[in-house]
Amino acid sequence: MNIAVLSGKGGTGKTTVAVNLARVLHCRYVDSDVEAPNGFLFLQPDIQDKADVSVQIPQIDEQRCNYCLACVKHCQFNALFGTDSSIVFFEKLCHSCGLCSLVCKQNAIKEVPRRVGYVEFGSSAGAECWQGVLIPGEPVTGPVIDALKARLDGDLSIIDCPPGSSCSVVAAADKTDLALLVTEPTPFGVHDLHMAVQVTEKLNLPRAIIINRSEGQDAIIQDYANATGIPIIGRLPFSLEAAQIVSRGELLVDKEEWRQRFQNLAEAVRELIACTS
């Protein structure tokens, strides 16, 4: 059972919800926000294993190349540029699809690995913690997210997804079993919640809304939930104190009053799991 935590808008409290929920559920936490991974700051796991994530890129043997430019013509990502006497490769545009080496009749293209990030595996309070980290300057997040997801084994895992609604979110949330949508009761919050909802629709995921920084009625979100039929399964109240606790990298569940809130949320999530499986 894999639960994706997403939001559309950044900074709505995805990581706060994901780490605290993982702690009360005693389950695995997976940080797939590889551009800005922050979950480990809260969980402080002991790292037991680390692996580089590499992608395959072409290396052109100029001795063999006859500059037919078939590779240049076939590349859909403009990662290769050529003239009748040279070929230039732009590694950051490459998607590692392998088409250039397939089309090369001279066998002049060999694929070699290039490191784009790493994954780390550890544990905190007896539960597993995983994260992926993209190296600054690398544009493509998919391979790092895939390296995490390839290790999922069916044990209950909470997947902390990136913000936004692009292919990174798809990579993180695809083939999960349930999406928890964290939002805040503001016009920005509901606008971006709708973006996230559309992604979950595309992926056919059951979903539920969690309102962070709730102010009680949260009419703006409540109206959206009513209109779309997506249930609201929890509300975390707005609190300056909570903001301060989170800013220090501390877990909210270490405070009694918040522990109870997250236990209630965990109960609601367990019910959803029972319904979806």
Partner: peptide
């Protein structure tokens, strides 16, 4: 700008 530091940020 967008959040993160991937392709949209670059």
């Amino acid at each position: 700008g967008p959040p993160g530091l991937g392709c949209a940020v670059i």
